Simulated assay, not measured.
Amino acid sequence: MTGTDLSIVRGEKTFAQRILGFFGNAFVNVLLILVAVFWLVPSIGLFITSFRSSADSASSGWWTVFTAPAQLTLENYANLIQNPTIMGSLWNTIVIVVPTTIAVAVIGSLAGYAFAWIDFLP
């Protein structure tokens, strides 16, 4: 028997089982959720700020939108769509990213097929 076989016979937990046991703990899960929410607060603030006017953003914090939701507007996004420079840049991004993503997926699937089914050893 090898060393890994002996650990299974003895009932010892593998490293992966110990990690899963640690992260399966309810306290750790709650702590990870709190860290994730705390980590997302700046992104949520930026997203909410994108719907506020410049004057509102300069005069108060983004969290005031919860007490006065009337300050939300789509004017900033309308201005972006009407800007030809931004729309040209967005179109260039789409023209580059879509074919590249498709090419990577096709080449990766071909490589995966090769690794799965072709015998590389003589």
Rank of each mutant, 00 (worst) to 15 (best):
M1D: 00
G3L: 07
G3I: 08
G3D: 10
L6T: 06
S7K: 01
S7N: 10
S7Q: 07
I8W: 00
I8C: 01
V9N: 02
R10E: 03
R10I: 04
G11D: 03
K13N: 04
K13R: 13
T14L: 02
T14W: 01
F15P: 01
F15K: 13
A16K: 09
A16R: 12
Q17R: 13
Q17A: 14
Q17S: 10
R18Y: 03
I19A: 10
I19N: 06
F22H: 05
F22N: 05
G24P: 03
N25K: 14
A26N: 11
F27W: 15
F27S: 11
V28K: 06
N29K: 15
N29Y: 07
V30I: 15
L32E: 06
L34A: 14
F38T: 15
V41A: 07
V41W: 03
S43M: 13
G45K: 00
G45D: 01
F47P: 01
F47K: 05
I48N: 03
T49N: 06
F51R: 02
R52N: 02
R52V: 04
S53Q: 11
S54Y: 10
A55I: 15
A55T: 15
D56L: 00
D56F: 02
S57Q: 11
A58R: 09
S59N: 13
S59H: 09
S60R: 11
G61D: 11
W62N: 00
W63C: 09
W63E: 11
T67A: 09
A68N: 14
A68P: 04
P69M: 10
P69T: 12
A70K: 12
A70T: 14
Q71W: 03
Q71S: 12
L72I: 15
L74R: 08
E75G: 11
E75A: 14
E75N: 13
Y77C: 07
Y77M: 09
Y77Q: 11
A78R: 14
N79D: 12
I81Q: 05
I81P: 00
N83E: 04
N83T: 12
P84F: 06
P84T: 12
P84Q: 10
T85G: 02
I86K: 00
G88N: 13
G88S: 13
G88M: 13
L90C: 04
L90N: 05
T93Q: 06
I94C: 05
I94Q: 07
V95N: 04
I96V: 15
V97W: 06
V97Q: 08
V98I: 15
P99R: 00
T101E: 07
I102T: 08
I102L: 11
I102K: 01
A103G: 08
A105P: 04
V106G: 02
V106T: 08
I107E: 02
G108K: 03
L110T: 15
L110I: 15
A111N: 07
G112S: 13
Y113A: 07
Y113N: 07
F115I: 15
F115H: 06
F115R: 12
F115P: 00
F115T: 14
A116D: 10
A116C: 13
W117N: 07
W117S: 03
I118G: 01
I118N: 02
I118V: 14
I118R: 06
L121Y: 04
L121M: 08
